[in-house]
Design a binder for these strands. Structure first.
Lengths: 188, 188
DNA sequence: GTTGAACTACCGACCGGTCGGTAGGGAAAA
DNA sequence: TTTTCCCTACCGACCGGTCGGTAGTTCAAC
């Protein structure tokens, strides 16, 4: 039994029941240990949550840096970024759901630390849109709003996406990026 | 002290701390009653949550029926629907946040009942998009995906919108609808 | 005198977390 | 090769405190 086994089991239960509704006993049962034994591996329930969030965010930041630093055009960067992000959200739903929903339950100090890093992540998305506007391929939209919109569409997936649905992750992300790039209206 | 005072106070605290992190004592303190006295007005903590969700959803369904039943063109229906919905989300953030985030904490039976009604609400959005596609003013996008996307952008607002921000609710919704209708790319 | 709204006092269950202790395996000392 | 020692992983029992909820009572308004 390793620390990461516990973290992973916790993520799964946090996702299903939420952080506060999950007891340390629940986690202990999942890894077939006594509750006390868990404290040999982790400091506290808060630390478990924090670790889950950090791990998830690190993964995403790595993904995004690669896309932003590539020499693709803004349009392709956006498409690729969405492919990768949707892939992560659908691929590890436990991690994703906890990341997006449960960070609220971090105590203040840890939450602040996490928010800083999350803002840094979102700034990478912002950069892609800025680039597109600067190069004249994107209309001069409000950058912040566009970023929020793009994050929102994708993040909200965690509330409705179910594995084995009608569309694959790739089809979903392509639908999204097409929608964002071309809009709903037919050509004028 | 009325029942609705208690419900409203609870919504406020649920929003800030989450359902499970909120104790009946917290709610009692907020309305300056003893915890036991609250049970004179409500059946249980679950019932409080359920009432909040029902009230919020009823409001939204009423809004949406008016828009769908109007004789506006699909493009204007979408614009108006987003204006109204964003107005609600920003106007009563407590209700909105609890509606979108805390319904997960309903016990199974109540959650199922709620989900049915929420699906009925989302079907109204779907209808607008369908109408646009049928009339040939919207491209023939995947209707489900487009609906999820539009709901997602707006619903995700509850995570970042703060009163007194740079843009008004109306400006926000107009930015959103413009983005959805015309897309990011400049005219070809 | 009935009623509704509030109170005090309490319940059993469970919470996150800590305690002292131990089984067992690997390394160092004899 | 045997003995000693230490360390990791784990355990059962327990801590003070809080949880949602209940029982029974008081009291003012009608």
């Amino acid at each position: 039994m390793s620390r990461s086994d516990i973290i992973q089991a916790a993520a799964q239960i946090f996702r299903k029941k939420g952080f506060h509704a999950t007891s340390m006993q629940d986690i202990a049962n999942a890894v077939k240990l006594q509750k006390a034994s868990i404290y040999h591996h982790v400091e506290s329930k808060q630390e478990i949550l924090f670790t889950i969030l950090e791990d998830a965010l690190n993964l995403l930041i790595g993904d995004m840096r690669a896309v932003v630093d590539s020499d693709l055009k803004p349009k392709e960067k956006l498409r690729l970024a969405m492919q990768v992000y949707v892939g992560r959200l659908t691929g590890d739903a436990d991690l994703a759901t906890v990341l997006l929903l449960e960070y609220r339950n971090l105590e203040k100090k840890l939450r602040t630390r996490h928010s800083v890093r999350r803002d840094r992540y979102e700034a990478l998305w912002r950069k892609i849109i800025e680039e597109g506007v600067d190069q004249g391929v994107f209309r001069s939209v409000d950058i912040s709003i566009a970023t929020f919109a793009i994050m929102g569409v994708q993040n909200w997936m965690i509330t409705w996406y179910r594995e084995g649905g009608r569309l694959s992750a790739l089809e979903l992300s392509d639908n999204f990026s097409e929608l964002f790039l071309s809009g709903l209206l037919v050509e004028k």
